[in-house]
Structure formats: C-alpha cells, structure tokens
Amino acid sequence: SPPGKPALTSCRSPEKETFTCWWKPGSDGGLPTTYALHYRKENSDTVYECPDYHTAGENSCFFNKNDTSIWVNYNITVVATNKLGSTFSDPVDIDVVYIVQPNPPEKVSVTLMEDRGMPFLRVSWEPPRKADTRSGWITLIYEIRIKLDGENDWEMHPAGQQKLFNIFGLRSGGTYLVQVRCKPDHGFWSEWSSTSYIRFPDYF
C-alpha cells in the first residue's frame, strides 16, 4: 500500500538564526519509502525542497542562516513516497521567532567561596556559544538549580541576565549538584546544563 501519513513533530531554532524541523514517518506500507520536506514562504508561491537533510540527523531538515528568515511564515509539508504512491503530512505554519529554544548554558563552574568565615557557592557560566547575546539579537535569562546529592528536590534560583550567582545559606555539608538553564526573551527554556558537583563543608 502507499505510505502512511507522516507528521511534522517539531521545529526549533537555537539562536533566531537557523532552524530545524523533525518529522515522524507513518507506516512504510512494507515498501522502501523516501521522505521529502517542502516549504513555501509567505508572500511567494515558489515551493522549495529542504536544503539539508543531513546536518540534523534522521527525519529532519536543517535550514542554515541563508535559508532562514524571521518574521515570515514558512508553510511546511512532508511527503512520503513509495512505488505505490505519495502521502502528505498536514501542513504546518511557523515563524522562526516563535520557536526559539536555546542550547543550555556552557562552562558552568561552581566554586567554594568564603565571606567572613561563612562558606557560600559561586556559580558562573557562559551563554550557549551559538546564541549571539553580545549584539542583543537574543537576550537570555538564567535559572540555577541545586540539590544535595541523594535528595529529590531541587532548590531553584532565578538569576536574571547575570552570568554569575552566589548561593548563600546552604545548611548541610556534602556534595551538591548544580545545573543552569536559559530562556530567550521570547521563547522556551533550554534543557538543563550538564551537572557540576561541588563539595561543601559542614558548617555551623
């Protein structure tokens, strides 16, 4: 039989400059099946095919800087084809400005500090390399979470636009786990960064 209906599952831009869309294949009808992604930009009738099926892995299409405009709707469809026919996904309309989700902050480091005999932790990090925060093209705010090794609940700390945060008032000694994530001015939270571990002294 012809292929089952494929579905566009998500589109995401890590930095408001490029984006990737992923799809889920339908059933293959028991035959070799190929997939193609087509798109049309608002104000044009020209239909283009995906410029890059490789960079973002299987069942995806990557749009590099040259293929990415913002404040313009992309009407996107995936078509599955085998020798008995073609099946189209439902079309999806996206504007890249509404699908921004940055990569996690990088170079997260935690240092044990002391202020008048009282220990505290200093967490510092850098924005994800791809996000151009310097020019103001994207503005990121950060959130830190920390917990004692073996405990369930994280303690959250909003850090605003700062890239450095001091955590005072830790009660118990032990190994702490620290992670940081970021959110663009209009978009979605990143995943949490990889965990940094720090040994905190017993203190009373």
Partner: peptide
C-alpha cells in the same frame, strides 16, 4: 504580535550597541 516583536528586537539591538 509580529510588529511588537520587531520593535522589541530592534530596541534590544540598539540597547546593546
């Protein structure tokens, strides 16, 4: 919504400059 995003983006670039 689109225009306010443009305004916001332009002003944030200006802010950083």
């Amino acid at each position: 919504r689109r225009d306010s995003h443009k305004i916001d983006s332009f002003l944030k670039v200006l802010r950083c400059r």
